[in-house]
Amino acid sequence: MIGFLVRRLANYVVLCLVATFLAFALASTTFDPIAVLEQRNPPPPAAVLDAKREALRLDEPIPQRFLSWVGGVVHGDFGRTVTDRPVADELPRRAGVSLRLFLVGVVLGVVFGVILGVVSAIRQYKLSDYLATLFSFIILSTPVFVLGTLLKQPAQSFNELIGTNYLQTLGESTPGFDGSWFASLGDRLRYLIVPTATIALGQIAYYSRYQRSAMLDVLGSDFLRTAQAKGLTRRRALFKHGLRTALIPMATLFAFGFGLLITGGTFTERIFGWYGMGDWLVVGVATQDANIVATVTLFIAVLVLVSGWLSDVLYAALDPRVRV
């Protein structure tokens, strides 16, 4: 099993390279940073443009540029931006911002999604099931940017209710906030709540639908009946035998759910003024910067594949039948 997981991981390194190359090649062929410079008024002198072209190595073939970029990445150098700043300088801060949003979102999404799905399945065709279904479908059919904007409203009302501006909906921390580590954590939390809710709601809706149907399959199963025939109460049988088995299909979904999360993340970051990776991608496209696009793609590819790998591990941990 360990060998299998190691091999999987090795496969993923290749996949990461392929994904990044595709993004890099696509960006390099369509982006034209020199044209952006030429648009300036007054237009920069030709020598400046040539120097820029030289610096960005636009004359080299794309695979060669990609290889030298990858060569740099191995040493922690992600190339320079169009504005001539090292990409690597900004990477850790932006990655940290995004990870904070994504990780909290995914944990909340999985936990509450599973709970909602299970409750919904056990109370099938009762009011709570209908309400959960309604909630899920409304959330799933609402684009993230609409949802994010809408959520600002109740946050505002909440602030008015308690009389202070506790819930913040712009930025990720109070500018110039100075205090102990703990106080700073509290400060960041105020900014984190609404954006995280935006992301987590979509995830909850997504996971709860699948968990509900997985649980319904298990509810009618023979082994649940055996467990009860053995003398377990219904509740105990449901949790020990039912839920445990119904979690298995969720492990595979985890990998896909993460992709959804990242798409949502890009919009969420823009809406709430978080300068994370998703925001950066938008900036990279706006400034016609292939290096930024490739870096963000690599970051996302790593996240998606790590989550895919984690779902393999999770699957094997949950289901003895696939352990090889």
Partner: peptide
């Protein structure tokens, strides 16, 4: 109630089901 019945089930009255392939929980 379920709690009282579960004290009888498996101890005083037990049951063998039709399909042995699905009668056991796959994960234990």
């Amino acid at each position: 109630g379920d709690a009282e019945l579960s004290r009888l089930r498996g101890r005083r009255v037990s049951m063998v089901f039709q399909d042995p392939l699905s009668a056991l929980t796959p994960v234990y």
